[in-house]
Amino acid sequence: MKRSLCYSIAGILLFLLFWQLLAACFVQREYLLPTPLAVLQSFAENLSLLLRHSRYTMIEAAGGMALSVLFSLLLALVMSLFRRVREAVYPLLVLSQMVPIVVLAPLFLIWFGYGMLPKVLVVILICFFPMVIQSLAGLSAADSEMLAFYRAMGMSRRQLFTMVRLPLALPYFFGGLRVSAAYSVMGAVIGEWLGAEAGLGLLLTRAQRSFDLPLTFAAILAIIIWSALIFAVVALCEHFCLRWRRVTAEKWE
């Protein structure tokens, strides 16, 4: 564990070193490729600006995530309980992922204006899909033999659900949640990119239009940091909810 962390950090440092050399010695033009140090400097100088815009982006991303969790759990539940609903909704779900977000987002803009709502919708559109699909797979993880066994033990439908199906579905759900977590900030940024009052996406477009590449990269850095934070929160939740999975992981390490 410790060792793999060392390698990860070494890999990142090596990448930054390569970038620094490339930018400082070969490109040598800040408006084309700023050095990592210049990016850091811009990050520090524009910290309050970045934070101000981050607030919007993070509210959109976290809000969208929370709503996706609710929405996807409910949908997965209904779909797993009613076969007909599942058959009717599944194709729609898949179809919803085939329309490019960059095409949909401007439509949301027209319908819902420049506020947060259209961005939250973009986040939901991106985030709920992996969670529904995974939760659905998870809810059928308990096979019919196992369910028959516990039914014979005397479990009611409700007990079967809370004691067997739900716990067995949880690892799958968290798998989907991880994917969503990684995409959530990106979704908000894409939404803002196409028109917003505030947010990192707006800041990005502005910085790019004025050829302020250090600020552009600083905004990207902020996006990465926030995404990592959301991912870490999800991983932490998983850590506490799935204690028994950690135990299994140890066995095979």
Partner: peptide
């Protein structure tokens, strides 16, 4: 009342 022990242990992994 019948208590069944199946060939597969059917233990719940989270318990």
């Amino acid at each position: 009342r019948v208590s069944l022990m199946m060939q597969q242990d059917m233990l719940l992994p989270h318990r």
